[in-house]
Amino acid sequence: MQTKIPKYRELDKIYHPDSCDPLIKAFKNGKIKFAGLKRFNYPGEELPDRVLPGVNSLGFWDAKIRQTWGLGWHRNEGIEFTFLSSGHLDFSLGKKEYFLKSGDLTITRPWQPHKVGNPNVEIGKLYWLIIDVGVRQPHQNWEWPDWVMLAQEDLNMLTKILRQNEKAVWMADNKIHQCFQKIGACLEESKYKIPHSKLNLLINELLLLVLEMFNNEKEEIKLDGTLTDNLRTAELFFEDLKNDYDRPWTLETMAVHCGLGITSLTKYSKQLTNLPPINYLNSIRLEAAAELLRNDNDKNIADICYECGFSSSQYFATAFRKMYKCTPKEFRLMVWETER
C-alpha cells in the first residue's frame, strides 16, 4: 500500500510532491526527451521494491526547444539533487529566485517548497535524484538507505553539511557532470532492464563527489546548528500555517505534522508567536476572514467562516467580535461605508 501523498498550500497555490504532469504531457507530445524511474506519483517507470529502496525519483529531461510549461510549487519526499548540464533554467526556492546556468547543482531539502520555470522551462538538459532519508522536518535524524556505501565518517560529514547548510545552488565540477551522464545512460538502458548494480554504484559515486565538492569549496562552508533545532521546525510550521490555515487542525495533528510533542510545540509557539498554537491559528483565520470580508462583498459570511477553517459559524462570530470588536456583518458594512 502506497503512502498517502500530502498536499500543501502557498498563497493562492496548491503544491504537493510533484507528479510532473506537464513534463509527461510534453514528452508524450514529442516536445521533450525524458527518461526516469520512480516511486509514488513521481514520473517514470515504476521501481520494484527491491531495487534501490529509498530512491523516489531519478530521471532527466532534454529540451531542444523552449517549453510552454513549468513545474509549480512543490515539495519532495526526500532530498533532491538536480544538475543542469546545458542551457539555462529559472529556479525558485522559498522566497529566493535563481537563474541556473550549465554546471549548476541544486540541493533541496524535503521541507523546502520550490518551483522550476518562470513560468516556462528554457532549452536545456536537467538531471535529478530524490532520495528519501526518512525525514520531513529539519530537526529529525536522517537515515540513509542501507545500500549507501560511504564510510560512516564520510556519510556523517555529508549529512551534517546537508542538514546545517541550506545553500541552494552549487557550481559542480566535471566529475559530477560525467556521473550524471552515466546515470542518464543507465536510465535509457532501463527501458529494457533496470541496471540495478550500475545505478547503485553511480549514486554512491555521486554522493561521494558531492562531499568532495563541499570539501573543495574555496570558501569555508558555514554550518549553522540552529537549522536542525526543534525550534527551526516549529518556526517553519508556523510560517507555513499562514497559508495552510483552512485545514482541520487540532493541537494533536499540529504536533504530529511537526514531529514534536504537544508540550514542546506549545512552548515554541509561545516563544515564536506569543500565543498557544490554536490561538495563533485562529488569529490567522480571523485575519483571512477579515480580508475576504473587505475584498469580496458578495461572498456569504457563512461561506467565509468555513473557507477560513472554522467549523462553527457561532464560534466564528464570537471569535471575530472578540478580535475586531464588531460582528463580521458590521465589519463589512464599516469597510463599505469607508470606501464610498
Rank of each mutant, 00 (worst) to 15 (best):
C186N: 01
R136C: 13
N295A: 10
N204I: 00
D296L: 10
R247K: 07
G259F: 04
V210A: 00
W69V: 10
P276G: 07
P113S: 11
D62H: 04
C179H: 02
A151I: 06
E10N: 10
L105W: 06
T108M: 14
P17E: 05
K160F: 06
I65S: 14
K167G: 15
E287V: 01
Y127T: 03
P43Y: 03
G309C: 07
R321Q: 10
E339V: 15
T3I: 11
N200F: 02
E291H: 07
K7E: 04
S311K: 05
R340G: 13
L93V: 15
I203P: 06
L207Y: 00
L241W: 03
T266F: 10
I301N: 09
S92V: 10
S264P: 07
C20Y: 14
L187C: 03
N41Q: 06
L52W: 00
S311P: 01
A172M: 12
F27T: 10
E291C: 08
V55Y: 00
Y280V: 04
E189R: 11
T82R: 09
A317S: 15
R321M: 08
L89Y: 07
H16A: 13
L293S: 13
I203R: 06
D298S: 15
R50W: 06
L93G: 11
N200M: 07
L275F: 01
K222D: 12
C186E: 01
L293G: 12
G78K: 09
T82K: 08
H88F: 15
T327I: 10
K38V: 01
T273Y: 00
D240Y: 02
E307P: 05
W336K: 12
L187K: 02
L231K: 12
M334S: 14
W61S: 09
Y42K: 03
L199M: 10
L286N: 01
E143I: 03
I24K: 01
G72L: 15
T226G: 06
N282S: 05
K7T: 06
E287H: 01
L84H: 12
T250A: 06
L187S: 02
G87W: 03
R163K: 12
P195H: 12
S197G: 08
T253F: 09
P248F: 02
M323H: 08
I221D: 04
C305G: 09
F81M: 12
L129T: 10
V55K: 00
H177F: 14
A185I: 03
F310C: 10
G103F: 01
D298P: 09
G70F: 07
H114R: 13
D303W: 03
E212R: 05
